[in-house]
């Protein structure tokens, strides 16, 4: 069963303390900022994504909305070459 990017992003958000809400209760398109993601937590999330997916976000994606939801993050990752589904 291939694992969509969204699921891998969710794994990274689990038990980090970056969100005030439990990621399990949030939809893929739910606003992570509304769920308590702060600017400093966004920075930590960005670094964690870069490490986990072995990528580097280009400057044009270093924006607030890139990290605004699980879907938005997945879209950005796919845009810079991450496979939609990993085995």
């Amino acid at each position: 069963m291939p694992l969509p990017v969204q699921a891998r992003v969710r794994t990274l958000l689990k038990n980090t303390g970056w969100l005030q809400a439990d990621i399990e209760t949030l939809a893929d398109d739910a606003d992570l900022y509304a769920a308590g993601l702060t600017s400093h937590a966004t920075v930590n999330l960005m670094l964690a994504l870069e490490e986990a997916f072995d990528i580097e976000f280009p400057d044009r994606l270093l924006r607030r909305r890139t990290f605004s939801s699980v879907d938005a993050i997945a879209e950005a990752l796919v845009e810079i070459g991450v496979q939609k589904e990993a085995a």
Binding site: S39, T42, V43, M46, E56, L62, R63, R64, R65
Partner: peptide
């Protein structure tokens, strides 16, 4: 740095 770029654009967007 690069994380600062994210903080800066966020600060402006908000």
């Amino acid at each position: 740095g690069r994380t600062g770029k994210l903080l800066a654009t966020s600060q402006r967007e908000e």
